[in-house]
Design a protein around this nucleic acid. Structure first.
Lengths: 292, 292
DNA sequence: GCATTTAGCTGACTTTAGTCAGGTAACCTG
DNA sequence: CAGGTTACCTGACTAAAGTCAGCTAAATGC
């Protein structure tokens, strides 16, 4: 049976290798060697200083240097010394370079769109792709404190609200930016932590404080595609650490017993069940944890 | 929103491209250029004559020729003229070549296993991979008549039985090879058609005949990962054509109204609802179609 | 049976990718 | 400020990949 699993993975690898090859071919049609195209794209993506480029593309210093020279000769990039350390250098797309980068982006978008077009209902395929994406690059998931109004936080909160509405069959209203509840999830009272894979949101949790020693965990969410990987534990730990660092001594939270995965985690991470502390209709379980 | 979908596909492409690169790196560790390794693997996979290799690997005739020469020099392959057309040539792995191919297979298996190992429960990931595999290579799906006892047919029937058991909550007993019901799905009485993607089963259907002009459709199944692509129509058409070609004039089938997609398809493909013709407890709808 | 086509090979070439040993300017350390 | 380190560059090289014209032998078409 293990053999069968492996052959499924290998069938998968084979089919995506074809897809990757096709994208590279479409890049080659721009008349530039793949190496140069890759460098141009990396610069467009924001890898602007040469050492970052080298690390990202895993290129030898000599090779990268030459590729940069060739892009310069095409008038697509400019490199200037980094004013903070004039040994290192910063690359920048010229307007022509930005145009060319945009064309590569277009090519990538077109290939992606081609795949989607062949599916009347692409949702299932997209969900499957998300699962694979997270599974293959889980070590690149970063956990970090961000402003609840940031782009990535908004993505998380929107997805969270959509899922709650679906799973609990109720209309969950997303709080607006000015909402006092949200402003309590911000330093110095509280904080907001997201887990993300690049620009893809995979989880979030808010710590809502009021200046006192007791704060509350809110908006704990893990993207469906990222479940079963143990991310929630990491996310909660990050949130607890962040809470401790702003002087919070104890946390509490409410949840619903229908969210059994979450409930299991809380118990497992040292949360203690307590009595109801609010009269919201939705939660039916309440927990507390002291941050020693 | 379309933009968001595209970025999901592109995130996916990016993450799998890394995987593909890693596999190629592991291939390079065998000390042979990637081009030669690819040729060796293609030969091992069964692309034995030179023109097939060329088409499969999309290589220039000169380049392939040289790669074949280098593999010959290593003692890994032999090429002999094709006795049927002595202009063309057939390549064959030597015992040493077969060993070397096996090592590459091992490397691929190991990479696949590495991915699986990181997941306690890999089922969700594997299902997602299957969906992606089918979506990306649906144009490679082949529909063909096979013996019901063949490897691919057995895979289909096993999956079919497992799914029926799960969905209808009953213990569906897989027929054994010697079963008379199955032997009626074989020429000259009947036939068995599968849809497959390489060695991956994506669908099947049996035509069970008794020598007369009327036969019955049985074991119609589409793999979960292949649904929503309109394969069932193609599969049924293939089965009807195959039935006609062995002299069958009319087909009938029983089904359950819970399988609404299948029922919709039958109606759409010119099947006419008829009265119950057996007393099985599971079906509640009966159809017939005359093969003009 | 002779011209034509086909399959594959070879030689001669170019481009791309990658490696490595210096070299230079800028920076850092004591 | 001397000595070492760092960041990047250049030159010189090799290996791999790809292209193309011309060749040969076998098959095919009329």
């Amino acid at each position: 049976m293990q053999i069968d699993k492996i052959s499924r993975v290998r069938n998968f690898s084979r089919s995506v290798a074809v897809e990757v090859g096709a994208l590279e071919d479409s890049f080659l049609n721009r008349g530039r060697p793949l190496g140069a195209a890759r460098v141009l794209n990396a610069i467009g993506l924001g890898y602007q200083n040469v050492s970052d480029l080298r690390a990202f593309l895993k290129l030898d210093t000599g090779l990268l240097s030459r590729l940069l020279r060739s892009l310069e000769a095409e008038g697509l990039i400019e490199t200037i010394p980094n004013p903070e350390d004039r040994r290192s250098r910063i690359t920048k797309l010229t307007p022509a370079g930005a145009d060319e980068f945009e064309i590569y982006e277009q090519l990538s978008d077109e290939r992606a769109a081609t795949i989607l077009e062949r599916h009347k209902d692409a949702r299932r395929l997209l969900d499957a792709m998300d699962i694979v994406t997270v599974a293959l690059s889980r070590e690149n998931i970063v956990f970090e404190e961000v402003d609840y109004a940031s782009d990535i936080a908004t993505k998380c909160l929107t997805a969270f609200a959509a899922e709650l509405s679906r799973r609990l069959d109720l209309e969950f209203e997303l709080k607006k930016s000015g909402d006092p509840e949200l402003s309590q999830m911000k330093h110095p009272h509280g904080t907001f932590v997201v887990a993300r894979l690049g620009d893809m949101p995979v989880g979030c949790v808010g710590v809502k404080g009021n200046g006192g020693a007791l704060a509350e965990i809110k908006r704990m969410w893990i993207a469906p595609s990222a479940r079963g990987l143990g991310l929630a534990r990491h996310l909660m730990t990050t949130a607890e650490d962040a809470a401790r660092s702003i002087g919070i001594e104890a946390l509490r939270l409410d949840t619903n017993s229908a969210l059994f995965e979450a409930v299991g985690l809380y118990r497992n991470m040292g949360w203690r069940e307590i009595d109801r502390y609010n009269d919201d209709p939705y939660p039916d379980l309440f927990f507390e944890k002291h941050l020693s």
